[in-house]
Amino acid sequence: MSYYDLLPGTYFDPTYAAVIKSLLIGDNVLLVSPYGFGGKTFFNFFLSRQKTIDRTIISWSNNLPVKTLLKQVKENHRRGTKQIVIMRQVEKIDDLPVLLEKLNDIRQPNPQNTSYLIITDHRGLTDIDQYLAGFNTFFSSRYLLGAFDFEKTTENIRANCLFFGWPYLPQNDKKVFQLSGGIPRLIKHIYKEINESQLTFEDPSAFLFDQSISFQLQYLADLIMKIDPNYLIKFGILDAKKKIKSELLAMFFSDLQVKIAKQNFAELTRAEAQLFSLFFSNPDEIISIDRVADFLSISDDDFSLWAVYKLIARLKEKIKSKYDLVNLKGRGYKLGFESR
Results as ranks from 00 to 15, higher is better:
Thr137Cys: 05
Tyr35Lys: 15
Ile84Glu: 03
Ile57Lys: 09
Phe135Met: 08
Trp60His: 15
Thr81Asn: 07
Val73Gln: 01
Lys51Ala: 15
Arg78Tyr: 09
Val98Glu: 11
Tyr131Cys: 04
Pro65Phe: 09
Gln112Pro: 00
Leu64His: 12
Ala133Arg: 09
Gly26Cys: 13
Met87Pro: 02
Leu69Glu: 03
Ile25Met: 13
Asp121Leu: 01
Glu101Ile: 00
Arg78Gly: 02
Asn136Arg: 15
Ser48His: 07
Ile25Gln: 15
Val98Arg: 12
His122Ile: 10
Gly80Val: 06
Phe42Gly: 03
Ile25Thr: 15
Tyr116His: 04
Leu70Val: 13
Phe43Gly: 07
Gln50Met: 14
Gly124Phe: 02
Asp129Met: 12
His77Ile: 05
Ile57Phe: 06
Thr126Tyr: 05
Val85Cys: 10
Glu75Phe: 06
Lys40Pro: 00
Lys102Pro: 00
Gln130Glu: 11
Ile25Val: 15
Gly80Asn: 08
Glu75Cys: 00
Arg49Asn: 09
Asn63Val: 14
Ser48Asn: 15
Arg107Tyr: 01
Asn44Arg: 15
Lys71Ile: 07
Ile57Val: 14
Ile128Cys: 00
Ser33Phe: 11
Gly39Ser: 12
Pro111Ala: 05
Ile53Lys: 10
Gln83His: 09
Leu31Val: 11
Ile93Gly: 02
Val90Ser: 09
Tyr131Leu: 08
Gly134Thr: 07
Asp129Phe: 12
Tyr131Ala: 06
Val73Asn: 01
Gln112Leu: 09
Ile58Ala: 10
Gln112Asp: 13
Leu100Lys: 00
Thr81Met: 08
Asn63Gly: 05
Asp127Leu: 14
Lys67Trp: 03
Thr52Leu: 15
Ser33Glu: 05
Asn136Val: 08
Gly26Pro: 08
Gln130Asp: 11
Asn63Phe: 13
Arg123Met: 11
His122Met: 03
Val98His: 07
Ile128Trp: 02
Phe46Gly: 07
Arg79Gln: 14
Leu96His: 01
Gln72Ser: 13
Phe135Trp: 03
Leu30Tyr: 08
Ile106Ala: 00
Gly38Phe: 02
Val29Gly: 06
Gly134Ala: 04
Lys102Arg: 13
Leu31Met: 15
Gln130Asn: 14
Pro109Glu: 02
Leu47Ala: 10
Asp129Gln: 14
Leu64Cys: 05
Glu101Cys: 00
Lys92Tyr: 11
Ile84Val: 15
Phe46Thr: 05
Glu101Ser: 09
Phe43Trp: 11
Met87Arg: 05
Ile53His: 10
Phe45Met: 13
Leu30Gln: 06
Asp95Leu: 03
Lys92Gly: 01
Ile128Thr: 12
Asn28Arg: 12
Asn76Gln: 14
Asp129Gly: 07
Ile25Gly: 06
Tyr116Thr: 01
Lys102Gln: 13
Leu23Gly: 04
Asp105Met: 07
Asp121Thr: 11
Lys67Asp: 12
Arg123His: 12
Lys71Gln: 14
Lys67Cys: 00
Gly134Phe: 04
Ile119Ser: 02
Thr120Trp: 04
Gly26Phe: 10
Lys71Gly: 06
Lys92His: 10
Lys67Met: 05
Leu70Ile: 13
Thr81His: 07
Arg49Pro: 08
Asp54Phe: 10
Asp121Pro: 00
Pro97Gln: 04
Glu91Thr: 04
Leu47Met: 11
Asp105Gly: 01
His122Leu: 06
Tyr131Lys: 07
Leu31Tyr: 13
Ala133Asp: 03
Asp105Asn: 10
Asn28Tyr: 13
Phe45Val: 13
Tyr35Gln: 14
Asp95Gly: 00
Ile119Phe: 07
Val73Leu: 12
Ser115Pro: 08
